[in-house]
Design a protein around this nucleic acid. Sequence first.
DNA 1: CAGTAATTTCACTAATTACTGAAATTACAA
DNA 2: TTGTAATTTCAGTAATTAGTGAAATTACTG
Lengths: 191, 191
Amino acid sequence: MSDTTTISAAPEQLSPLTHALVLHFGEMGNRWGINRTVGQIYALLVFVEAPLNAEQISSLLSFSRSNVSMGLKELASWDLVIMKHLPGDRRDYFTVPEDVWEIAKTLILQRRKRELEPTLTELRNHLVDASPAEDYAISRMQEMHDFMELIVQWTDDMDRLSSADLDRLIKLGAGVNKVLDFTRRGKTESG
Amino acid sequence: MSDTTTISAAPEQLSPLTHALVLHFGEMGNRWGINRTVGQIYALLVFVEAPLNAEQISSLLSFSRSNVSMGLKELASWDLVIMKHLPGDRRDYFTVPEDVWEIAKTLILQRRKRELEPTLTELRNHLVDASPAEDYAISRMQEMHDFMELIVQWTDDMDRLSSADLDRLIKLGAGVNKVLDFTRRGKTESG
DNA sequence: CAGTAATTTCACTAATTACTGAAATTACAA
DNA sequence: TTGTAATTTCAGTAATTAGTGAAATTACTG
C-alpha cells in the first residue's frame, strides 16, 4: 500500500482505455465548439473517479499548467465542473457531476444560451421595427423565431426531467413519446 | 418593369434587414461549427426567396467566387441546400427547404451524425473488450453510451414529426409533452 | 507582514483554419 | 471535335485560435 492515500486515489498515469477515450474527446472537442485541451480535461474528469488538481491534470495530459488553468476556467464558465477542497490541502480539486443526465442537461442549457438565444434576441429586435415591404424575409424570420421559442420550451421541459426518471426510461428503451409523458406527470415516486 | 424576370427576382443588393441577419448568422456560424462564409451563404438562401447562383451569392456577400463554391459544397455535404436549374441557363441555382422544421430536422440529424455517432462507435468498440479491472471508467462509459443511444431514439422520433404537426404545436404554444403525444399518435388528419 | 504555494494573466510563438486568384476541370453548344 | 461558360481544385497567404513560459496576483501560513 502506498502512502498517497488522498481520496479514491488519482492515477499517476492513464490506463490505455481511459487514454484512448480522452484523446477521442479531445478530437470531438472541435465539433462541439471547444478546443482539444478542454475536451481532454473534461473527459479526464469524467472517467477518473478521484477529483484532480491542476497539477495532476497537467501531468496526466502533458500540457502546460497555464493551459490547464485556462481550460478549467472555460469549463467553469460552462458550469461543467465542480470544485472541491481537501482538508489541509489548499489546491483546488475538480470533478464533474455523478450522473450523465445532469451533465447533459447543463450542456443543453449552455448550448441553448450560446447557439440559440443570441439569434432569438436578434430576430426579436429586428421583427419589431420591420417594414412590411420585405414580406418574404420577415415571414421567414417570424417562423424561425417561433420555432426557436418552441425549442426553448422543450429544453425547459427537459431540464425538469430528473435523473431517476431518465434512468428508468433508458431501461425501458423508451422513445421521445415516453419521455414527454414523464415530464407531464411531474416528479415520480422514486428517490 | 425590368427585363431581368427570371423567377421571383433575385435582389441586386441586400436590404438593411436581410443584411443585418446575414451578418449575424455569419457570426453565429462559429458557434455552430461552420465558418462565417458558410453561415452567411446559408442565411442568404433562407431570407431571399429567389434561388441564387454562385455568382449572385458571391457579389451579394462580397467574397470570392471560389469561396462560395467551397461553402456551397459544404452546405451540400450537410444536405442543407437544394439545387435547381432554370431552362436555358446552365448555372446552378440554390435554395433551402421552404419550412423551418425541414431545415431543423436536417440539422438535428446532421449534428447527431457528426457530434454523437463517432463517440457512440468509439464507446461501443472500447466497451466490448474492456477489462473489468477498470470498474469506474467502464461504468461511466456504459452510462454515456446508453444515454447517447437514447438521444438517437429521440431524434429519430423527432424526424418523424411532420411540419404540419409542428406548426400546430407552435400555435398551441405546447411544450415537449405535447410534442411527444403527437409523435406517438402518428400522422394527423391535416394536409 | 514576510514567506511561500497555488493560480491566473499575458505577450509571444505555434498550429490551424479561412480565403483568394490562378490554373484545371467539367459540361455543354456549335 | 473546338470553343466557351461555369465550376472546382489547389497552392499560397491571411487571419484566427491554441498553447506556452515568465511574470504577476492571490491566498494562505507562521
